[in-house]
Design a protein around this nucleic acid. Structure first.
Lengths: 346, 346
DNA sequence: GTTGTTTATGATTGCGCTATCACAGCCGCA
DNA sequence: TGCGGCTGTGATAGCGCAATCATAAACAAC
């Protein structure tokens, strides 16, 4: 009814008065403390309903309780991978009665540091972090702070903390081995954001796989931005040892390469094979559909959230753990498999 | 150094003692109150640095200040559209020194209500909401609550609040008119989630455009799920007045239809024209690339956030406003334009 | 030299909640 | 009959901060 009236929210004291009991009895009732008579509890519940009372979270926190909230800091929520991770985090948190603070660092370590700081002193009970720079000096400080931290996707290199990531190295090998299985020898690796630990691991996985298969000539290309793809591919194709296959080490590089290939009228799967790291739903809609290493983004979110909550509740007393989730290869057409759709029997 | 020591956080009182001043002077210094001597301020700043003091947010809120945080509730963060909106919200909030609480309702009105409740009593200063059900009864209650609310994308039908949306109706007309410009007469509309107000508006825009152009036979199909696309398209194509063009009223329907079309070996742009509502980056990568009505997702986020912040600060005293952002048509190939790439001069 | 205003500071109080202590019944068992 | 243990309840204090009021010095104005 009253739209503009200040209409002060009822306090615990109000409820106590209304129910004709002391404030502590109300507090006990709310918190499910054992020593409250059934009869009394009923009266209190009634008063709470009548006054539409809700505990003031700020006051609760002030008395030293948990805030029942966690912070989540990702580089970019609009990135599919992180949005899926965020979704899972949100869900796992909700299931446990936790709220989540979301912040985007834009891959900027100083923004990130400010956000961690903000959250820690807010306070949140714990933080899930995708570090933009695995060796940013500020990480050292926060790793020893009382607030538990779990890193997602990228571990800290400069300090120790719980972390949940994926098998980048073996994932890359999966991709390369598949390409080798197609008979390709000259396989180049294309990556963007090569400063990230995850990408470094994938590149290193690429090298390992090549080496194991006895191939010497690794070729690695770093894409500084979208437009670089075209230039680098042109160069690559003019080279005497023109690669027969491409391993794109992340989402961005996969997409940029596909765009460039298309502009240059080079047919994926036929003129050149391609396997990417990080699978995205719409890869099925591209012609030919894109073969890629699929990361368990959702699990990444839920596993890390559950770990963090365990830390918060003190159920997990051991020192830092590093969890690495397996990845799988989703085989489609860009690698050269399943092509000629429509020409075969079907 | 000390990893496990409780190491109580320094309080304002501690700082006051260390700096040899009263607590209020410290408070004033922190909050940039005018009447603090430069000399004193320096001493206080020094003490703050020394003790690594950070204001306790909970205590601050308790004294009745703003929490400097807003809540954001979207149906699904992993949906591209909402992830872009969320990104913009996050950014706009950060620019204003606000933090954002993120929650996903999963298009479930009861979860949503619980989350709004949780946020309101947390408390946050304001809420950005994408209502799952525009006429959920709980909206009535929250619309009159003291916490300002701005709805994004979908206005409340059952109560009044600020809202920011896009021009669904005229956007649909844009799409239909373009198809009519191609000479098509039989244009069908395919939609998913048709219970949503936005989708209803788009369908109604479709009808209007058809009517204005003097075409009687509107055909509307509702997709209950991914698999329905195939069935409905088969049916549609067998029908005597088989449509020459398709208007897909949302992202999901666009994608599902494209998938089905592909399975059925029907060529977009040639055998049937298609224009979708809601443009997504990867539409350029599909063959043929998809013509779609582009929604200003990012603006949606930033405009609504700024409006909410104005409400919070009380800078905006008028009654509820409804802001509608324009949409544009991004013409690519699926409508029949620009086809035969590679055959023309280029 | 008295009054008034501006500048700079501190003491106190209370926000809404829970921890702690205190206390009153009530049971059982010696 | 009494003592210790359980059960139920309330008074009080204090979490860390900022609003309020009080104060005092410095300066201006008359």
């Amino acid at each position: 009814m009253s739209h503009s009236s200040p209409n002060k929210r009822a306090t615990l004291q109000d409820v106590a008065r209304a129910a004709g009991v002391g404030p502590m009895t109300v507090s006990r009732t709310i918190n499910g403390h054992p020593y409250v008579a059934e009869e009394t509890a009923r009266k209190v519940q009634e008063a709470i309903r009548l006054l539409d009372y809700r505990p003031n979270h700020a006051a609760r926190m002030l008395t030293g309780k948990l805030s029942r909230s966690i912070g989540l800091i990702v580089p970019d929520i609009s990135d599919t991978f992180f949005s899926v991770v965020s979704h899972a985090v949100q869900e796992a948190a909700r299931e446990n009665g936790y709220l989540v603070w979301l912040a985007a660092s834009d891959e900027d370590s100083s923004i990130e540091a400010a956000q961690v700081e903000m959250m820690m002193h807010h306070p949140v009970d714990g933080i899930l972090l995708v570090p933009s720079d695995s060796r940013a000096k500020y990480l050292k400080a926060i790793a020893t702070a009382p607030t538990p931290i779990v890193t997602i996707d990228r571990p800290m290199e400069i300090a120790t903390s719980d972390s949940v990531g994926v098998e980048n190295r073996s994932g890359a090998r999966l991709a390369i081995d598949h390409l080798i299985g197609h008979g390709h020898r000259k396989i180049a690796c294309v990556a963007a954001n090569s400063h990230l630990l995850t990408i470094k691991e994938r590149i290193s996985g690429y090298r390992e796989a090549m080496q194991r298969a006895g191939m010497e000539g690794t070729q690695e290309f770093i894409l500084p931005g979208r437009s670089a793809a075209r230039r680098i591919l042109t160069e690559m194709f003019a080279s005497p040892n023109r690669p027969e296959a491409l391993f794109t080490a992340n989402n961005a590089s996969t997409i940029w390469v596909i765009e460039a290939l298309r502009e240059m009228n080079i047919r994926m799967g036929k003129d050149i094979a391609l396997v990417g790291f990080d699978d995205v739903d719409f890869f099925t809609l591209i012609t030919p559909s894109v073969t890629a290493v699929r990361q368990p983004a959702s699990e990444l979110g839920s596993v890390s959230t559950r770990l963090l909550l365990q830390r918060i509740k003190g159920e997990f007393k051991t020192s830092s753990v590093r969890t690495v989730l397996p990845v799988t290869l989703t085989v489609r057409e860009s690698c050269g498999c399943n092509l000629k759709r429509g020409n075969t029997g079907e």
